[in-house]
Design a protein around this nucleic acid. Structure first.
Length: 574
DNA sequence: GCCGTTTTCGGCCCGACTGTTTTCAGTCG
């Protein structure tokens, strides 16, 4: 059972207990345990085997015992009993806007409603409005909430859609008179791999005017909520957006608040309280009621004697403790990247020529580029036969002489790891390539043992230098292959094989948790774009965001090396 | 239910917004 599945059980328990009316702190404890399990880079089942469950933040005697039952018996009696008592449909109901535990319990107990369909029917027939604390408006909101929930079933949007939209809005917000600053906040600023809605923060001394100007943007389809400091809207394309407007002298604390995560902010506020300071989006308050205002976000952290914590780390995964101890990692940046090690051309399924891809990389400031067209078996991608691979070598050498000494073009390949674990070119062909990237594209649904074995075999091949997009997942459309990542990381570390963070916003593979664990185990990483077009080089920032979320530093990343050092690494590999 | 640079017991972040209310409960982030 994977961490996600275990976390989901505790999340469900928290929901069910809250519907039962259990004290909030108990439900909070289950929720914290679930978050903490999700953030574990190691499998919690492994941790259980080692008898170290209680080392996990938020896991104490009671929750450890329940996990023990789950892993040793295959099920958790406490959870089974709870499910028999509280209908599971109520848990889904909580995902509808404006429906929380109190209302869900009321619908259940007063009207016998136990699932979304029944709730929708009751709302439609006007039967909810007579309940305590309800009225026609609440009923209409819930009905709309159910419909919005069904619309967004596909879920969260990718960073590749979210960032460009946010940047467009931010640019226009900055043009509004009276706006002194506008920044993205929320999970977008933390570079989470998907975001539920876009959070934007504006600094202005004229909040009413700014808010009104924003609400007049033509893309805005529906206003969900509107106040002095905060409004929430739905765009015509269904995307949700929240905007906060705070005075410039309070912008720093507002940005900190709006960026989250909630768990990080709670930690920070608890820490502030210990120093007699109450922190909110408006700033700090001392016990005597006087305020400390923060125009800059760094001032928020400095006020409680902490260094500024990069947004990507703010998930309550140990960053506050690391900040206190002065051991925050010096995270890799976009500017650290010197070369690209995964790019396609029209020799296989890329859209541009060798020269166009090379010039583009050179003009974007890179020092070297590894061309990695697909290998022969991947027919749909026009994979290269051995003969075409030899022709491509000549073309690359010829182009190199045109490009000059300040930029180096390498020939590699993205070699398919076949279903039986062998590679798609024989060893003597692989030997002739400058750097070899090996990836899986097919038979991802094999058993955990089989896929893991394929990858281990590829890693042990002396010619393989990099493993591309390890799990093969496509966010929102294809699940990751079931892998023993721990075994793979150990093997890669031992053989000096690099693991890629694929920057395509649909992939982001390795993900943040994997990246962090891989480095812990001793692996080096590459941050690649998998570009099939010049435009795709811009994906790099998403890979960087993912790496930073994984606490990755420049020295963990092979393509931060200068051309000279990269050449030395390559020589040592051969 | 968890946890300890106030505590092994008694706390556990803070405020905005909405709709239903005549001062507040519920939800959300």
């Amino acid at each position: 059972m994977n961490n996600q599945e275990v976390a989901q059980i505790f999340e469900n328990i928290a929901d069910m207990l809250s519907i039962k009316g259990e004290i909030i702190y108990k439900t909070l404890a289950y929720r914290r345990a679930a978050d903490s399990i999700r953030a574990q880079s190691r499998s919690v089942e492994d941790i259980w085997r080692d008898g170290k469950l209680k080392d996990i933040q938020g896991v104490g005697d009671a929750i450890a015992k329940k996990m023990d039952a789950l892993f040793s018996q295959g099920k958790m009696p406490f959870y089974e009993e709870l499910k028999a008592e509280v209908p599971v449909g109520l848990v889904e109901m909580l995902k509808v806007g404006d429906v929380g535990p109190k209302k869900a319990a009321m619908f259940w107990k007063e009207m016998g409603i136990t699932d979304l369909d029944a709730l929708e029917k009751a709302a439609d027939e006007g039967k909810l409005r007579d309940l305590d604390g309800m009225g026609p408006k609440s009923e209409a909101r819930i009905l709309e909430g159910i419909r919005a929930f069904r619309r967004r079933q596909t879920g969260r949007i990718s960073l590749g859609d979210a960032w460009p939209t946010a940047e467009d809005f931010l640019a226009r917000l900055r043009d509004i008179p009276g706006v002194e600053a506008a920044e993205a906040a929320g999970s977008l600023r933390r570079w989470r791999e998907t975001v539920g809605d876009l959070d934007l923060l504006v600094g202005s001394s004229h909040p009413d005017d700014v808010m009104q100007a924003f609400l007049d943007f033509p893309e805005i389809g529906r206003v969900l909520g509107q106040g002095e400091t905060k409004s929430s809207v739905e765009l015509n394309n269904g995307l949700r957006m929240q905007i906060w407007v705070h005075p410039p002298e309070r912008f720093g604390s507002a940005l900190q608040y709006a960026t989250g995560s909630k768990e990080h902010s709670v930690k920070l506020r608890e820490w502030a309280l210990k120093q007699g300071l109450s922190l909110s989006e408006h700033g700090f308050k001392r016990d005597d009621g006087t305020e400390i205002l923060c125009a800059e976000e760094a001032n928020v952290y400095a006020t409680v004697d902490l260094p500024w914590i990069p947004p990507e780390l703010r998930e309550d995964r140990g960053e506050v403790e690391a900040a206190k101890a002065g051991v925050l990692p010096d995270l890799v940046t976009l500017e650290d990247i010197r070369g690209e090690l995964h790019a396609h051309t029209d020799w296989s399924d890329g859209q541009l020529t060798l020269e166009e891809m090379a010039r583009g990389a050179q003009e974007s400031g890179l020092d070297y580029l590894l061309i990695t067209d697909h290998s022969q078996s991947l027919g749909v991608t026009n994979g290269l036969s051995e003969e075409r691979l030899r022709s491509q070598r000549q073309a690359i050498d010829k182009l190199q002489s045109k490009l000059g000494d300040s930029f180096r073009l390498y020939q590699g390949a993205e070699v398919e790891i076949l279903a039986d674990g062998t590679l798609d070119y024989p060893d003597d062909v692989l030997k002739g390539l400058d750097v070899v990237v090996a990836s899986l594209h097919t038979s991802l649904r094999q058993s955990r043992e089989k896929v893991t074995k394929r990858l281990l075999r590829a890693i042990r091949n002396q010619h393989v230098d990099v493993i591309g997009h390890l799990t093969g997942r496509l966010i929102g459309s294809r699940d990751a292959a079931d892998l023993d990542v721990e075994a793979i990381f150990r093997e890669a570390a031992e053989h000096g094989v690099i693991l890629e963070i694929n920057s395509n916003p649909e992939r982001l593979d390795l993900n943040d948790v994997h990246a962090r664990r891989a480095v812990e185990v001793g692996c080096k990483l590459a941050i690649n774009t998998d570009a099939h077009h010049l435009d795709h080089y811009a994906f790099r920032r998403y890979g960087i965001g993912t790496a930073r979320r994984g606490w990755v530093t420049a020295s963990d990343v092979i393509n931060t090396l200068s051309m000279k050092d990269f050449e030395a690494w390559r020589a040592a590999r051969n």
